[in-house]
Amino acid sequence: MRVLLVSPGFHGYHSAISAALVARGHDVTTHVYDDHGGLAGRTWHQLRHQLPHRVGAGSLRRLAREETTRAAAMVDQTRPQAVLVVKGDRLGEQFWAAIRRVPRITWLYDELRRTQWTSERLQPLGPVATYSALDAADLHAAGLDVRHVPLAFDHRLVPTPTRRRDQPVTFVGARYPSREHVLAALVAEGVPVRAYGRDWSGHPVDRLRTWRVGAPSIPAGRDRSRAEAYDLMTASVATLNLHGDQDGFTMRTFEAAGTGAVELIDRADVEGLYEPGVEVLPWSQPDELVELCRRSMADRAWTDTIRAAARSRTLAEHTFDHRVAVLEDAWDTA
């Protein structure tokens, strides 16, 4: 079918979803609804929308209207036979009206409370998929057509990850207080650790991008592309997957395992996706995490078996191809 994929640009995951749809025989057009068009466009976006919003001089409603108009125009232009919307909470009625008679599904990679969605707003928009098992249960109870669809690994991005072991324990991702607390505890115990991302970096450009003056004391590097992050995790002694206040499993859950990294995950309920202690290494207390880090540094034979098992399970069950097959089934009921 002619499929229109409407997605935010978040880390380029739309490319993985598009490739999975193409692999299933579809003709895919991707519309990135928050694409601002290169460096000049991003700068203008910051000045026109983000800066006034941050200083309390304006809202983001105008931005939402512009994104909605562009997305609706893309529907008219492509005349899709099916539509997959990723997140989409900033898109207004003009867009949803344009796809009302088209088979469709909306896939959420965040909890409802962190988006502009409500069950009432989602009710008339067609099938919903969510990475959150709790949200799936609540939406089902509210009468929505909903599926629990976890996130996934982009196995096409780095088909053969690096096999170096020259990086310390790493964390790749946004900086939140709970995550900073974990990394600081490891540093205090003498565990070599390094965080990557613009929120951690002390580089002047990253401080400007994140509207801050200082930087945390944790050793840090700048942003990495997704491909670079995949190789970085694999090249690490072990890599951290830190959730905090989330019930859905992050993309990193599947990416770290899929690249063949030693994944230190702060979730004991990962069973069902991965086998704890065999494919991933859960922990709940700081001393457990420290012990796992030290064993990962000392026992390569042990970690090699974990790396192989994690990658094998991911490629067999947790790629975007697997997820798209589930999403595709929902179009029949739209």
Rank of each mutant, 00 (worst) to 15 (best):
198 R>E: 02
107 W>F: 12
137 A>T: 02
201 S>F: 08
131 Y>G: 07
264 L>Q: 09
231 D>Y: 08
142 A>P: 03
324 V>I: 02
2 R>M: 10
51 L>N: 04
7 S>Q: 11
98 A>R: 13
24 R>K: 10
288 E>M: 00
167 Q>F: 14
103 P>A: 06
200 W>K: 15
226 R>T: 01
309 A>S: 13
153 F>T: 02
169 V>Q: 13
176 Y>H: 14
283 W>C: 02
222 R>K: 11
86 V>R: 05
82 A>I: 02
211 W>Q: 09
271 E>R: 13
158 V>F: 11
161 P>G: 03
206 D>M: 05
68 T>W: 05
48 R>V: 10
183 L>V: 06
299 D>Q: 08
43 T>M: 13
171 F>N: 06
171 F>L: 09
1 M>G: 08
85 V>F: 12
282 P>Y: 15
240 L>Y: 03
310 A>I: 00
79 R>K: 09
128 V>T: 02
38 G>D: 15
158 V>K: 15
290 V>N: 08
23 A>Q: 05
136 A>M: 06
59 S>R: 13
19 A>K: 11
83 V>W: 00
3 V>I: 07
77 Q>F: 07
102 V>K: 09
19 A>I: 01
49 H>S: 10
14 H>Y: 13
190 G>N: 15
6 V>G: 04
14 H>D: 12
189 E>P: 10
5 L>R: 03
45 H>P: 02
147 R>D: 11
175 R>W: 05
290 V>P: 04
114 R>H: 10
198 R>H: 00
146 V>M: 10
305 T>R: 09
100 R>I: 01
15 S>E: 13
321 D>H: 09
134 L>Q: 03
129 A>L: 08
115 T>K: 04
308 A>D: 07
44 W>R: 08
90 R>M: 11
116 Q>E: 14
209 R>N: 12
211 W>A: 11
307 R>S: 06
266 D>K: 14
214 G>N: 14
59 S>E: 10
34 D>Y: 10
82 A>P: 10
